[in-house]
Design a protein around this nucleic acid. Structure first.
Lengths: 107, 107
DNA sequence: ATAATAGTGAAGTATGCACTTGACTATAAT
DNA sequence: ATTATAGTCAAGTGCATACTTCACTATTAT
């Protein structure tokens, strides 16, 4: 399996969890910290940290610790693989519709 | 929670599973049946049927039974909510970058 | 110096859900 | 009529993983 596919796998898996999607949505409004992310989610900061691991692993979030505070940022580029996948499926589908159209014209 | 969000939830959840993504990828190449989908996946047709339920529920797949055969089709329109979500996050992020830029210009 | 804050790490729990089994129905083929 | 095919339904199993606890470190504040 090509590396690109494995990455797509990880991104979809990451965003398949509603809590992680909430984190991404929050971070797209601006950077935040682990505990500020945890507060509205009503889960422990340990749980948030675990989600951040997953999001960082697949390139949707970048993280940087300064002093005792870890600042988390949304990584726009991480969305590219998602868009690519969508585009791929759509074009495969349309390709096939075109072929069907050609067949009909032949008659 | 608005209906649009719940639908986005369902689509992300659906595509978060690698088997369901494989089904969608297969169907984007053209319609198929339950058992033809099951064969390469190496799971029972019962399992495939359950995945199809999820995919149908969130609008990514349309299904139609004729005689004893159920034909499954990829529903391109189902991808729209995904694209919308991506677009939303990106624009929120850029909006914020613009605001930061404005602040810097003020000095 | 003390206390408060922000986060880390290891280990355990439990619950959702992907998948199976097996018995069944309906349609198609011989 | 019999057999084979395509799928369905209810119920159960097992495992992945989201989440917790608790003990700990490092940084900041008083």
């Amino acid at each position: 399996m090509p590396a690109a596919l494995r990455k797509t796998d990880r991104v979809f898996n990451a965003l398949g969890d509603p809590t992680r999607r909430a984190i991404v949505e929050k971070l797209s409004r601006g950077p935040s910290t682990v505990s500020r992310l945890a507060a509205p989610l009503d889960i422990t900061i340990t749980a948030v940290r675990q989600h951040l691991d997953v999001l960082e692993e697949c390139g949707l979030v970048r993280t940087e610790k300064v002093g005792r505070v870890r600042t988390c940022r949304f990584e726009t580029k991480g969305l590219a693989v998602l868009e690519q996948w969508i585009e791929d499926q759509r074009s495969l589908w349309e390709e096939r519709l075109d072929q069907l159209g050609d067949l009909l014209e032949e008659d």
